[in-house]
Design a binder for these strands. Structure first.
Lengths: 357, 357
DNA sequence: CTGAAAGCGCTAACAG
DNA sequence: CTGTTAGCGCTTTCAG
């Protein structure tokens, strides 16, 4: 609270009432052009800035959304937040941010904080720790507009924006098939997450579609750490008939694979092809460069906000509100999986600078 | 505005006045313990949540800070925001976020938005495009608490938190010297940024301190792109007496160096040692792993918030408000620059998972 | 220890 | 086209 010019000051200055000034500033149709002009001029002259707090209190709209992410340090979420904030500010919305640090407790605190701040709606990505989701389902009962992004859960029946993990898994596997690999393994992620279930299913279905036989021994249950990637490589190499390609559920586990395969002097992509998932920055900078599936982070943020906006303004038109948006994953084929003469299929925009300066 | 229980409802319920309820909720000393208990119980029972907007309007404190960053996509800033939000919420502050996209215009819009939202203070990192800084200096005149982080400008006389780039440059260079490199070059960044000036100065002073002779031909004026890193490598290799080590102003330019040196079959760190700046995620995943200087992002966020808080509450104690905090850069020595038998000097915490899922 | 009353700054009925 | 009036929900004098 640092500025003082109010609507009242402008009114005094022009011998008008605050109501008229308010209307003029809001471009109300029944105010004369001249008054509007005068008001706006004096507003500028007096360095007036509408007090959004007072306005919110009166109208019941804060024009603010709350965003809950596990952590702002994680690239992926930074990117999504980028998408969200960009479009939110285009629509005149402010973006409050909160981190759950993967805990349900902080998530609940965030929701409390947002309700206290009377946000118009909430965007959230579930914390890893979540097993009970009542803090989210309660929001539905309270009629608080809510959209989940990336980490969602179908059973909650909350509108969401996710990428098509199934297709991503399918594409990745299909790509390896088309590259002529014959025994294609999958380094899977924890199956309590739908995300990873879907990637696994995509893998299986792609194999089936191309008449590859399913071999359960080629599915290694791991997670998304470098460490597990290394262990997976050891496991695969110890098989009587090792795979000649691996679709890793995530780039970091793919990185672990690469590291271990290199240590053991297995040539990539000649002896083993590798593709990951997430399209992390480092993919293009390691050797060999890592093929991966992009998750459309920025677009995800934009879509999530648009959906939320539809819900917020939903009283007007309950129509046109989709309950789930599934984004198309975008494959980037790089050295780690391309062994025949092929070009990258997608235009790659290189991250050219590290801009923190 | 989705909940309805107000202080009035609680008052009605208990045959009290709103004033008493308010006091009870705020733990006012002159309210009986019993009343407080009753009020708090009914508050919970009625699912009351303080309307922060009304409260802000009345008290003139929004308990919200605004944060302006160039982009949430940039790792570095995501990390700083992580630090800021974490401590801000500990202190009961909400964090509004805005991106400048490196433009002065969006920065000005952000400031307008924040003033409209009556934030209690602003944290900002300057946009690359900024040449005129009046939108920031004006804030000072308006008595809006403001702290700059990372990208600051001493001439503005605005409190700031930065890392010690000079020391970082010094450490990096000294390390190369101690590794026994004899001709140490510097791939410098644009000198209109103090940050880069300071790193250059650190480089020069370290050379001087160890009686290395200064050779202007060993300073390549570049920027922080991979491309310039490659060009720099070409430049260095074309010199009559090429350097045997390079301190690159930033990890991405260091990456460019590595890529080109590898293409030209120069061995790292045997024939040329390389160290960067920023400690990007990929440093540990490329080959060779890249030595670098960490910028203490999370700590920077924490410090910046603390400083802002001191300013916000400054009316009480104008003392103890530092005008500039300079954080110590932390070197991470990895394969790209270590050629004698040496261990990494700092404990490295590996990014173990990619947590977007 | 509690109540009464006023007001933060804005907007929306309801006049006129 | 503009004024009057009232009130969003909370906090804070001032009384008692």
């Amino acid at each position: 609270m640092l500025l003082k010019t109010t609507i009242q000051h402008i009114a005094d200055e022009l011998k008008l009432t605050p109501a008229t000034v308010s209307r003029a500033l809001n471009n109300h149709p029944r105010i004369s052009a001249e008054t509007k002009k005068l008001v706006n001029e004096t507003a500028v002259r007096l360095n007036y800035r509408r007090n959004r707090i007072a306005s919110s209190l009166r109208t019941g709209k804060s024009h603010t959304i709350g965003v809950i992410i596990p952590s702002a340090r994680i690239n992926f979420f930074g990117s999504v937040v980028h998408g969200i904030e960009t479009i939110a500010s285009e629509y005149g919305y402010h973006t409050l941010i909160y981190q759950s640090e993967e805990t349900t407790e902080l998530e609940m605190q965030a929701i409390e904080a947002f309700l206290g701040a009377r946000v118009d709606g909430i965007l959230a990505s579930l914390a890893k720790q979540d097993t009970d989701f009542s803090h989210y389902t309660d929001l539905k009962k309270k009629n608080v507009p809510l959209v989940l992004f990336d980490r969602s859960n179908d059973s909650l029946n909350i509108p969401s924006v996710v990428i098509d993990d199934y297709k991503g898994g399918y594409y990745a596997t299909e790509h390896l098939i088309k590259q002529g690999y014959k025994r294609i393994a999958h380094l899977a992620g924890p199956q309590r997450f739908q995300t990873f279930q879907n990637r696994l299913q995509g893998y299986k279905d792609a194999l089936r579609a191309y008449n590859y036989k399913q071999d359960e021994s080629l599915i290694y249950m791991g997670d998304i750490s470098i460490e597990k990637g290394k262990k997976a490589a050891d496991y695969f190499l110890a098989l009587p008939e090792p795979p000649d390609a691996v679709f890793a559920v995530e780039d970091f586990s793919a990185l672990g694979l690469i590291k271990r395969y290199k240590e053991r002097e297995i040539k990539i992509p000649e002896q083993v092809g590798i593709i990951g998932f997430a399209n992390e920055d480092f993919d293009e900078h390691i050797s060999p460069t890592l093929s991966s599936i992009d998750q459309q982070t920025v677009q995800m943020g934009r879509e999530a906000f648009s959906m939320l906006l539809a819900l917020i303004e939903g009283d007007k038109s309950q129509v046109n509100i989709k309950s789930k948006i599934i984004l198309e994953p975008i494959p980037y084929y790089r050295e780690s999986s391309v062994r025949v003469n092929q070009k990258t299929t997608t235009t790659e925009t290189l991250l050219e600078e590290a801009d923190n300066f």
